[in-house]
Amino acid sequence: MTRALDPERLARAYVSTVTQGPSRAVEQLIASRGVIDAAATMRTGDVPKAVWDRISARAHLDSAAQSLDMVAALDGRLVIPSDEEWPAWRFLGFDRQDGAPDKRDAGAPFALWVVGSASIAASSERAVAVVGTRAATSYGEHVTAEIAGDLAVDGWTVVSGGAYGIDGAAHRAALGVGGCTVAVLACGVDRAYPAGHERLLRRVSESGAVISEYPPGTHPARYRFLARNRVVAALSDGVVVVEAGWRSGARNTASWARSLGRPVMAVPGPVTSASSTGCHRMIREGEARLVTGARDIAAEVGVIGTGAGDDDAQDALFGRDLDRLPATPARVLDAFPASGARSVQELSVDSGVTVSAVRSALVVLEIEGHAGRDESGWFRIGGL
């Protein structure tokens, strides 16, 4: 059996097709029964009511094999959680989405349809999202080009949504300096949306990646753009909003970044510009930090080529890593003693976090270099 037609991949392709975006109910079904069994019961309708309400209109669309053939014809692939390039730690923040009503049903993608040479896990290891209005001004496009270009030169992946305006300027700037850029679509990867960006998206796929949680053939829709924004935020170390109107969709991406524990930054514009009112509002209300270039962004999300000495750079990076930890891992880290090891259960009691959430948090802390484990349990790495 080929990689493309293994049962788990077929099941994930089916779930992606019938669910059309995130669903906590479907996520819980998969967690309890496994994706292969879950997909089989979804086909027959033998599922909880919350799941059936979500999938009933599409449950009969068993087009997984055809969708896999379509993405393969594009030299693409379906990336699933068991693949090495699945960005698992990037999606851990979705485990704690139980606050705002518009985020309660939004979990990690069930799969990612990908066209492009870049590994999703590797390209998102050091990434910044640059987003903004479609109706960008010449000022906005100029600032975007400088920011995205400088970030890409310093080795950051530039993540955006492939749209007109700021998104397109960010992708082009990264490509212009030979950097890596990732475009997250709100439609199938076989569709160039907007149509005027067909060539741009093709260039993105040549050195980076074009990705979507929706199978080939899926049309863009407003709710898919809103769901897409959470993936843009999740794949990044921080989100930079260059230009945004009062009700810009970029502010939704920024909201997701805050919810996932990512720093949010905004570029100020002329006080007379309607295209910058959203940025000014976020800065004024404390929703975003004011930045004017790549150096400011580095101060929020990590160290790039600032000319700092090695010791200074390491100290600065360590401090920022702690600052940008999501809330649950940070809370678990605070429960560690200065010396000695603790069990998962002890950390749960000391932090007030459930055992399952502690286990997820420890994965993040281990990857980030803040915690390790041996036969005696988990211990803290580094100072307080």
Rank of each mutant, 00 (worst) to 15 (best):
A234V: 12
A25D: 11
D150H: 05
D46Y: 04
F336S: 01
T253E: 08
S276A: 00
E243A: 04
A88M: 09
F91L: 07
V264E: 00
H60R: 08
S273V: 00
V115I: 08
G76Q: 13
A65T: 06
E213P: 06
S56Q: 12
R96G: 15
Y223C: 12
G168A: 09
D150E: 10
A254L: 00
H171T: 13
A361Q: 02
D150N: 10
D312C: 03
A88R: 14
D46N: 06
F94N: 13
A100S: 06
T133P: 02
I381S: 15
L384N: 14
P329N: 01
A234C: 01
A250C: 00
G99E: 03
A174M: 02
S339V: 13
P87Y: 14
S275Y: 14
L92H: 03
G307C: 10
W256F: 07
V47R: 15
D310Q: 01
G179M: 06
D83Y: 03
A129R: 09
V303I: 15
R228T: 09
C279A: 06
H60P: 02
A100M: 11
A111N: 07
I297K: 01
V242L: 02
A195R: 14
T306M: 13
A357V: 13
A227V: 12
R126H: 12
L290I: 02
A64E: 04
P263V: 12
A88T: 12
R230H: 03
G179L: 05
L151S: 09
A64G: 10
A38I: 12
E346N: 14
R281E: 03
D312T: 11
E300D: 06
G107N: 08
D6Q: 15
L185S: 04
A39H: 08
G307F: 09
V332H: 02
T181V: 04
D237F: 09
R77Y: 03
V210P: 05
A316S: 11
T292H: 08
S376F: 13
E300S: 03
E198C: 01
V159G: 07
R203A: 11
K49S: 13
A121Q: 07
V240A: 05
S276G: 02
R3H: 13
V204T: 02
G245E: 15
P270W: 11
T17Q: 06
V115T: 08
G293P: 00
G307V: 08
G132T: 04
V232H: 00
V332P: 03
E206D: 02
F94C: 12
L201Y: 11
G76P: 10
Q20G: 02
L112Y: 05
V128W: 08
I381P: 03
G176H: 03
P194K: 04
A72T: 09
R284C: 06
V241G: 06
V271G: 08
A40S: 09
D69G: 13
L92G: 04
D53F: 04
A59S: 08
V232K: 13
P268E: 00
V158A: 00
R251S: 14
G352Y: 07
D315L: 10
R281W: 02
L61G: 05
S63G: 13
A250S: 10
